[in-house]
């Protein structure tokens, strides 16, 4: 599904990650862990650029259009599946058909009261859930997400992770919550000092095994 061989990743000359070799197979649920700034986002964007048309994306800044409603932001997930005319029509007058499809998603993540509110007026957690709904609406086999549950409470985070696991077969997420990572992933990749320093199946892994990633 995804493969890097001796790659140097980063912005222009200054590479954040050097000499990376990595392979992710279809059906894997991968959690990237490590301190912020370690290079998780860099790795994710490398995945994203390889999988362009196959994966839904939740960027760290969520990529919401804050002047548009929750409904329209979610609809953006399928902009490529309809004609431009239909898209414009739906922009001006939300089509019943699309509302019908999006409603179950927002009901599940508790956004239904805010469906036609601009996302700019929502809290950080609600915005995050909107971005997740967009990815769910976009569908497909794979999802790439950069800290997608950082702003929601534990209960909601669990709910979101369950939903993602249910809808996507391949999942690659950068995560700061190590417990959650262990709970939902099948493989954990740890990043430290510009390199992959840990790559194991989650089976039998405990929190302690990962503590070294956060020490200096």
């Amino acid at each position: 599904m995804f493969q890097l061989i001796n790659a140097n990743l980063g912005y222009k000359q200054s590479s954040v990650l050097t000499n990376i070799s990595l392979k992710i197979n279809s059906g894997e649920r991968v959690a990237l862990v490590g301190e912020s700034g370690a290079g998780k986002s860099t790795l994710l964007s490398a995945f994203q650029s390889q999988m362009k048309n196959k994966a839904a994306l939740i960027p760290q800044d969520l990529g919401l259009v804050n002047n548009l409603s929750v409904f329209h932001n979610i609809y953006i997930g399928r902009l490529n599946s309809y004609s431009s005319v239909y898209n414009l029509l739906n922009l001006a007058w939300p089509q019943r058909r699309e509302v019908g499809k999006i409603k179950p998603l927002v009901e599940r993540l508790g956004l239904v009261e805010n469906l036609f509110k601009p996302t700019g007026e929502l809290s950080g957690g609600q915005q995050q859930r909107t971005a997740i709904c967009r990815a769910l609406f976009q569908g497909g086999d794979a999802i790439i997400g950069d800290e997608p549950v950082s702003a929601v409470d534990k209960h909601m985070a669990n709910l979101i992770m369950e939903t993602l696991v249910e809808k996507f077969t391949t999942i690659v997420l950068a995560m700061h919550d190590v417990d959650l990572a262990i709970k939902f992933s099948t493989r954990i990749i740890g990043i430290k000092d510009s390199a992959i320093c840990f790559d194991q199946s989650t089976m039998n892994l405990t929190r302690k095994d990962l503590d070294f990633l956060y020490k200096h």
Partner: peptide, 17 residues
């Protein structure tokens, strides 16, 4: 927000959304 737009969306749709 552009990065979240699925691959293959038309220029017009992307512009207006």
């Amino acid at each position: 927000a552009l990065q979240a737009v699925p691959y293959g969306s038309s220029i017009i749709s992307t512009f207006f959304y």
